[in-house]
Design a protein around this nucleic acid. Structure first.
Length: 275
DNA sequence: CCCGGAACCTGAAGGC
DNA sequence: TGCCTTCAGGTTCCGG
């Protein structure tokens, strides 16, 4: 699933290969993915525009265009952006193909059709409500403490809240809580100062490791060249229910929380009595 | 306002 | 073999 490290990897790949290219055609095989404007209007407005820069905010990819607009893409659960030689035919999961003036095509591939894109004058329209970027210098332990103090929900729920902190998803939330040795059900506003410092370090460490591994291919994730990442090979608890904890050997548990699987070590992340 | 669940989607995997 | 249920989970929407 594309989370911050996966989207960051794709962003870096696309920045290298897409900046300076002009869109020559747009083929929408699944028009339902276009949030705004309409599918036909997106086509006509996109063709002829050049990609000036590629950015990321949370899990959103942002293509800044020569006309001043931005193409904002969200891959959700199963989306991928693949650079292919032109022409490459679509397969059953290809949702859009963008022709480029350098002999390549950009394919939006999405098995579950949950991904979206929008052509907007100002990307803030979609990203304004997002919380702080956890890898920026400005994301200090004090900033994290301020976020956690505002929420009494379980920590795992707050880490997944994009308006609290941007970019963390299910896998890296579990990994960060394990790295900090904190139970996922602990109320966010009840952490000690030490625990908040540990969690701050853990969040940055697992996200940076994810980027270094070029993302985690636990499901359909691929980079822009279609290659798998290796970050999931370093995972300690995420998607490892029933396997032994790499630190203490106790069986990793799976806890259903808000409809999501939460993986943790019941010994290393012990639940305090007062919870 | 807060919280939890459903809906959006498809495919893999497991039970019977 | 085949049908049914569950799991996978990012985001938005809706009801209590």
């Amino acid at each position: 699933m594309p989370e911050l490290p996966e989207v960051e990897t794709i962003k870096n790949d696309l920045r290298d290969q897409l900046v300076g290219c002009t869109f020559t055609s747009v083929w929408l095989l699944w028009p339902g993915m276009v949030l705004q404007p309409g599918a036909e209007e997106l086509k006509s407005r996109l063709v002829g525009q050049k990609v000036m820069e590629v950015g990321r905010r949370g899990k959103y990819l942002i293509l800044h265009l020569s006309g001043g607009e931005a193409l904002v893409i969200h891959l959700r659960m199963s989306g991928a952006l693949l650079l292919r030689a032109s022409p490459t035919p679509p397969d059953g999961h290809t949702r859009a193909i963008f022709g480029l003036d350098n002999g390549q095509e950009l394919h939006f591939w999405d098995r579950r059709k949950l991904g979206t894109m929008a052509l907007v004058a100002d990307e803030n329209q979609l990203t304004a409500r997002l919380g702080p970027e956890p890898l920026e210098e400005s994301f200090t332990p004090e900033v994290l403490a301020g976020v956690l103090k505002r929420h009494k929900a379980p920590l795992k729920v707050v880490l997944l809240d994009q308006m609290a902190i941007a970019g963390i998803g299910n896998m890296y939330a579990d990994e960060a809580l394990f790295a900090a040795r904190i139970h996922p059900l602990r109320p966010a506003n009840k952490l000690s100062g030490d625990e908040m410092e540990h969690l701050h370090r853990a969040i940055r460490q697992v996200l940076l490791a994810g980027i270094k591994g070029r993302g985690a291919s636990v499901d359909t994730y691929r980079d822009a060249a279609g290659e798998e990442g290796t970050a999931h090979l370093q995972f300690k608890v995420a998607h490892r229910g029933g396997q032994p904890c790499p630190v203490c050997g106790v069986s990793i548990q799976r806890l259903p929380l808000r409809g999501r699987g939460t993986y943790f070590c019941p010994r290393c992340q012990a639940e305090p009595a007062e919870i």
